[in-house]
Design a protein around this nucleic acid. Structure first.
Length: 829
RNA sequence: GCCCGGAUGGCGGAAUAGGUAGACGCAAGGGACUUAAAAUCCCUCGGGAUAAUAUCCCGUGCCGGUUCGAUUCCGGCUCCGGGCACCA
């Protein structure tokens, strides 16, 4: 009696063996390969998204090992963050205790999935042995001017008494308590990511091919580069200038007024002495009180503004242009001032109509004559310049350069570039994060904590959930320090850093997780970085990935590393969906991976999440699909065991195709076709669903042979052994436990993890006969099995000789016959 | 509004260089085994016509084009998903 497939027992056996023997430690020789999946937040339980993400990564890691690569495949914990603080308040547990307990639970769960991590490199970002280096980076960035402090608008939740990151604001409300958030001006620390805007944009070209196109596009759009000109407009009767950014300097002759953001620094000053003071003040106040329009209807919001009483002078036409404050001008973009060309910009057009301002056409499209009086919308297309002095008749695209050059010559303006990207605000008024290593001294000002005093440890004895400000504010022993420079009493910064800072460099630290003499051990980082293949959810397409690209460049410029792009190849996997929605606690449609493992074992959970769809698409949850995966593993188990007595008397067939008896050539061909398909699917396409279906086909083929036949014929037995070993080796990265067990039962004493991926014997792929399809006028009418590489004339003759074909031709005249060798004949009548 | 994706059976999805549409799996139906059930094994399975596993017609969101031949290439739509959004 053959043993039953008992996933629990055998999975446990192999998992403990892998751990004991440190099977997945690095240093087993070969060229390096760094495979990384995005590390999880230790919420306490893994979810199906983790199962999918890490199953995908594990296939690649295990496959690369079987290709002889020295694979670094680490795991760690993105351990700082608000949920720990929320749990602390709700359950009276210290965030550190809560986090560490969750890490233990999740580590156990990941180990139960059989993922091939090198656990010796595990790290948690809430350890001071990790964040101390982040604090060092911060002080070094401060010295380099890459960190600065400024007052700025932030999202504030009054109920939770804290700043929220943009991504923690959902539809204008706090994700935690649901209360509407408000803008608040706070003094905040910023990372100067804008200093790298151009480099981050240019670097996108290097990602081409390795990263999904849409992620690159999203990053480019987020950086949002605009090329144009900065133009100075003199203010009439006032000794000042207003600078404007435009991408349409070709339309400068058509600028008839100017719009400033309501919070432009000159707004109030301009109105002084014009009689418009009251109106301007009222408008500014109104705009200040108004809620930010929700994104969706921002563009359709009615244009509104107020005349400042002042005029600027168009530098090319000398026209006096009234200066308005306008609700649609953003103070944070460009210079916060816009030259208005109503004929050629839709917003300016609407504003001009509203306030009766002149519309001047300066670009005429081909075959049409624009009349300002008749226009119902701005013309934003291309054409020839008119009413533009010396530039008349010039194509507007060419005029962009010519006008910019002209302005530059006259000292009126210059070419300029603007980005949408904003500096990264990293201050958080929270407890559970990396303390910002800065001391405020009345005498010395802002003083970075010296390296010898790092880490600035997060104090443990803290009251959470109180009202007002950062919890660290109230910890006297933390706050009160001597100034490291002059020694007088000073105060510590009590804000902590955004948790995205930790995740911006953790992948480098894995190279030297235990290194104590610095953040990064150069030889280790040189060996392993950059990450060869990074796998994670599409939801990080901008934030985490952009921050990491920024941080890599910062560390490069601080002299720690020699590369600029952290992730050579990126795979973004889709979400796990159930009942048409992303699995989430709030939707109540979660499937607990633990229940799945308990019922079917880890291998079933793995094969299901890989088989149901290709990685980049969303995966629709299906209970029966899981059952199907389980059935397949059972079938594999039974088939191998049924043949085992015969298989264990022979070696796997290793001869050439011409030694294979013709009765078995189909089996051998199928074996090698499967190797071929799986290699392409895994190595080139990352489509594990089709790789699995190819192996399923080979397993179906095995069903045609029984023990009796295998015992009767040694050649057959050795061919079956070759096929079975192929199945096991190809599936080993996908369902490693069952494969290890079967591999062992086949008499191998070395585990499957470092056995080479099977190699295709090209001669075995070739068939003696091929199926040729005969079409008449493009419709399939006959299928002929003919010798491979038959001459075109001969195939044609054969095709025409067929009775079915003759019937369809029905005596009609042949106009053309197309022959594709070994594939098809198309007869055109 | 702009920018990216996508649309194939009852379902998830295949079709890698323009050449047999629907691999593999799920669900469904029928059968075998069984006292019975589960499990397992075998068969059928896009729609329609027909006694038929013979034969014919239709079929990859819609309309058109290129081609001997289009799920695949081109043009124009529709719908769905995602990103950005008063960015000058």
């Amino acid at each position: 009696m053959n043993p039953e497939y008992n996933p629990h027992a055998l999975e446990k056996k192999w998992q403990s063996r892998w751990l004991e023997e440190k099977t997945f430690a690095t240093g087993k020789g070969g060229e390096k390969y760094y495979l990384l999946e995005m590390f999880p937040y230790p919420s306490g339980k893994i979810h199906m998204g983790h199962v999918r993400n890490y199953s995908i990564g594990d296939v690649v890691a295990r496959y690369k090992r079987m290709q002889g690569r020295d694979v670094l495949h680490p795991m760690g914990w993105d351990a700082f963050g608000m949920p720990a603080e929320n749990a602390a308040i709700a359950n009276q547990v210290h965030p550190a205790a809560w986090t560490s307990r969750n890490i233990d639970e999740m580590r156990t769960q990941l180990q139960r999935m059989g993922f091939s991590y090198d656990w010796d490199r595990e790290l948690a970002t809430c350890d001071s042995s990790y964040y101390r280096w982040e604090q060092l980076f911060f002080t070094q960035m401060l010295e380099k001017g890459l960190v600065y402090k400024k007052k700025s608008k932030v999202n504030w939740c009054e109920a939770c008494q804290t700043v929220l990151a943009n991504e923690q604001v959902e539809d204008g409300c706090c994700w935690r308590c649901g209360q509407e958030t408000e803008d608040k001006d706070l003094n905040q620390w910023f990372f100067k990511i804008t200093a790298y805007a151009e480099e981050l944009l240019a670097g996108c070209d290097d990602l081409q091919g390795g990263w999904p196109e849409r992620v690159i596009t999203m990053q480019k759009n987020w950086i949002g580069k605009s090329v144009g000109a900065e133009i100075d407009f003199a203010v009439a009767e006032k000794n000042c200038k207003i600078s404007v950014f435009t991408t349409r300097q070709d339309t400068l002759f058509g600028a008839t007024f100017m719009s400033l953001a309501p919070d432009h620094p000159l707004a109030t000053e301009l109105a002084q002495g014009t009689g418009q003071e009251a109106a301007v003040a009222a408008f500014i106040e109104k705009m200040r009180l108004q809620e930010a329009p929700s994104d969706r209807d921002a563009a359709s919001l009615e244009k509104e503004g107020v005349f400042t009483g002042r005029y600027s002078v168009n530098p090319l036409t000398g026209r006096k242009m009234p200066i308005y404050l306008a609700n649609f001008v953003l103070s944070g973009y460009g210079t916060g001032a816009v030259m208005a060309v109503p004929a050629h910009d839709q917003r300016d057009f609407e504003f001009a109509k509203m306030y009766g301002l002149p519309i001047e056409v300066v670009i005429q499209p081909a075959g049409e004559l624009l009349d300002p009086a008749l226009m119902s919308e701005a013309f934003t297309g291309d054409g020839l310049l008119v009413n533009s002095g010396d530039f008349d008749g010039c194509e507007n695209r060419k005029a962009l350069d010519l006008v910019a050059a002209h302005l530059n010559e006259k000292g009126l303006g210059k070419k300029a570039v603007t980005y949408r990207l904003r500096d990264w605000g990293v201050s958080r008024q929270r407890y559970w994060g990396t303390p910002i290593p800065v001391i405020y001294c009345d005498a010395c000002g802002i003083v970075p904590v010296p390296e010898k005093d790092l880490p600035v440890r997060l104090p443990e004895d803290v009251e959470l959930g109180g009202s007002g400000g950062s919890p660290l504010d109230k910890v006297e022993s933390f706050v009160n320090v001597a100034c490291p420079r002059c020694g007088i009493p000073a105060r510590r910064e009590t804000d902590t850093m955004d948790t995205f800072v930790e995740s911006s460099w953790y992948y480098m630290r894995y190279a030297c997780a235990d290194y104590e003499d610095g953040p990064l051990e150069k030889p280790a980082v040189d060996r392993w970085l950059p990450v060869d293949h990074y796998i994670g959810g599409i939801e990080h397409a901008i934030l985490h990935l952009l921050y990491s690209r920024f941080f890599t460049r910062v560390l490069r410029d601080l002299g720690y590393i020699d590369f600029s792009e952290p992730f050579t190849r990126l795979l973004t996997q889709g979400m796990v969906i159930k009942d048409g929605a992303k699995m989430s606690k709030s939707k109540g449609n979660v499937v607990d991976p633990n229940a799945l493992i308990r019922r079917y074992g880890a291998d079933t959970a793995r094969i299901f999440s890989l088989f149901a769809s290709p990685p980049e698409l969303d995966l629709e949850w299906n209970d029966q699909g899981v059952e199907g995966g389980y059935r397949f593993l059972n079938r594999l188990w039974r088939i191998v065991h049924a043949l085992l007595p015969a298989l264990n008397k022979v070696e796997a067939f290793a001869g050439s195709m011409d030694e294979v008896p013709s009765a078995y050539s189909a089996l051998r061909r199928k074996t090698h076709q499967t190797i071929d398909r799986v290699r392409v699917d895994i190595e080139k396409r990352m489509h594990f669903n089709t790789a699995i279906s190819a192996v399923m086909e080979l397993v179906n083929e095995l069903k045609n042979y029984d023990l009796e036949a295998a015992q009767a014929d040694k050649v057959l037995a050795s061919l079956l052994r070759e096929a079975v070993e192929t199945v096991i080796l190809l599936l080993a990265p996908i369902v490693p436990h069952i494969c290890e067990e079967l591999w062992e039962e086949l008499g191998h004493d070395q585990g499957v993890s470092y056995v080479s991926v099977p190699v295709v014997d090209a001669a075995s792929l070739i068939e003696d006969t091929v199926l040729v399809v005969v079409q008449i006028n493009g419709k399939v009418r006959e299928r002929l099995t003919v010798a491979r590489d038959m001459a075109q004339d001969e195939i044609k003759k054969l095709a025409l000789a067929s009775e079915k074909v003759q019937k369809h031709i029905g005596g009609k005249e042949l106009r053309k016959v197309i022959v594709v060798p070994n594939k098809l004949v198309n007869i055109v009548v």
